[in-house]
Amino acid sequence: MTGPSADVAELAGRMFDLARRGDTDTLAAYVDAGMPVDLTNGSGDTLLMLAAYHGHAPTVRALTARGAHVDRLNDRGQAPLAGAVFKGEDDVVAALLEAGADPLGGHPTAVDTARVFGRDDLLALLAPPE
């Protein structure tokens, strides 16, 4: 594939790589220049999902500060918060909660994930008061 659509696909691929690597400054500059903050790959993963799953709290904070949808689910119904709990990325969990992420969003939810992995410390942050 050549031409404009190949260029766009290559640029999008680079954006997803930046999110996975946690290259906060470069990714933020692209978003500030007009790259959609909720850019989504073929699996429904947003830049925020990739940054969260790979443990990059500063990148998560930069994206949420620029309006990234914190509860957007991927094609498997997974939320960034549950992914961060699954990976044990406590700093990312804190960043997502600060940005208003819903602990009961997606399947499994972040609360369910914390229960499965015995993360009582996170449950105290995630579980709604009864």
Rank of each mutant, 00 (worst) to 15 (best):
D17R: 12
L18E: 10
A19D: 05
R20Q: 12
R20N: 09
R20P: 01
G22S: 14
G22K: 10
G22H: 05
D23T: 14
D23Y: 01
D25T: 10
T26I: 15
T26R: 15
T26S: 15
L27R: 03
L27A: 09
A28E: 08
A29E: 15
A29Q: 09
Y30A: 15
Y30Q: 12
Y30P: 00
V31W: 03
V31L: 11
D32E: 15
A33Q: 14
A33G: 12
A33D: 15
G34C: 10
G34V: 05
G34W: 03
M35L: 15
M35W: 11
P36Y: 09
P36K: 04
P36G: 07
V37R: 02
D38R: 04
D38S: 09
D38W: 05
N41R: 06
N41Q: 06
N41I: 04
N41K: 02
G42W: 03
G42N: 13
G42V: 07
G42Q: 13
S43E: 14
G44L: 09
G44S: 11
G44P: 02
G44H: 07
D45A: 13
D45Y: 05
D45V: 04
D45P: 01
D45R: 13
T46V: 11
L47F: 10
L47N: 06
L48R: 04
L48P: 00
L48E: 02
M49E: 08
M49N: 00
L50V: 06
A51K: 08
A51S: 10
A52E: 05
A52Y: 01
A52P: 07
Y53Q: 14
Y53H: 10
Y53P: 00
H54M: 12
G55N: 07
H56A: 12
H56Q: 12
A57V: 02
P58Y: 05
T59Y: 00
V60T: 08
R61P: 00
R61H: 00
A62M: 00
A62Y: 01
L63M: 01
T64W: 01
T64F: 06
A65H: 06
A65M: 02
A65N: 11
A65S: 14
A65D: 15
R66V: 02
A68M: 04
A68Y: 04
A68N: 02
A68E: 03
A68V: 07
H69Y: 07
H69T: 14
H69G: 14
H69V: 04
H69N: 13
D71V: 12
D71E: 12
R72E: 00
L73I: 08
L73V: 05
L73M: 08
N74C: 13
N74H: 09
D75L: 12
D75F: 15
D75E: 15
D75W: 06
R76G: 10
R76Q: 13
G77E: 08
G77R: 01
Q78E: 13
Q78M: 13
A79F: 03
L81N: 07
L81A: 07
A82S: 14
G83D: 02
G83T: 03
A84Q: 10
A84W: 01
A84F: 02
A84G: 09
V85H: 04
V85S: 03
V85N: 03
F86Y: 12
K87A: 13
K87Q: 15
G88W: 01
E89W: 10
E89T: 03
E89Q: 15
